[in-house]
Amino acid sequence: MSPIRFYLSTIFLSTVSFAQINVKKVTTNLSQDYQSVAVWQNADKEFSVSLMAQPMVTPKPKQTSVANVFVTALHDGKNLALRLRWSDPQINDSDKLKSYSDAVAVQFPINDNLQPPAVIMGHQGNPVHIFHWRYQYQMDVKQGSKREIQQIYPNMTVDMYPQDYKFTGNIPKATQEQKDAFLGGTAAGNPKSYYKPQGIDELMAEGFSTTVTRPNPQASAFGVWENNEWKVYILRPLKYQDGSSLQEGGKSHVAFAVWQGENEEVGGMKSLTMAWTPLLLMER
């Protein structure tokens, strides 16, 4: 990005909308029941957030796939739970080649809750904290591991994998680490190659294309697809040592992005908010 374009983007894209998401406090333990229908009856009415096709960096979607995401949230003094709802006529995971998972992301500022950085995933020196749910991760969680190739392509053939022999004779069986040496992403420690037990990624970013996955995510997430729409529940702690921290009674900001799998959306191919939405953690 040219310096001028970057400068302009930080001025114009740090804008916030006037209305806000009011986060009511519940007395139950959200880490136990954030997925239950009953607890959400306590929440404020849904807030409609406008999205648009990502316009800044190539590749970009030709048109906006998801024009609105409807958001509501609760907190219990320890955790923040968000419920994100958007319309999606088709459910998509991304195990096969050229398939793309439905996904959603919620972004918080880190340094200053009241004066957030550029909404386009922060900027250099002013990072954002992102919670990224993918239906693909949820499919993994459902069976307790990533799906095996034999599950994805049942008719594929393979003679044998390296170090994975049925009969090894006198040779000791290979360790998982020795087997993993033959898997590029896994051997390189790429977080994309590993199972996500909580069904969510936590990321840090200082602008587009700079995302880094945080080790040991503390958030968790769960999505339900019915009646041609997704409802995704994301639970995050209010406090982080080195991430975005929220204060009961305090204000912060959030931004959103949605990926529509059937439109082959992934990475920068997404619908996103171009303004931060204020978020107020009410004391009751």
Partner: peptide, 10 residues
């Protein structure tokens, strides 16, 4: 080429 097991391209 995309590796559907490691979920990254090679």
């Amino acid at each position: 080429m995309y590796n559907p097991h490691t979920r990254v391209s090679e």
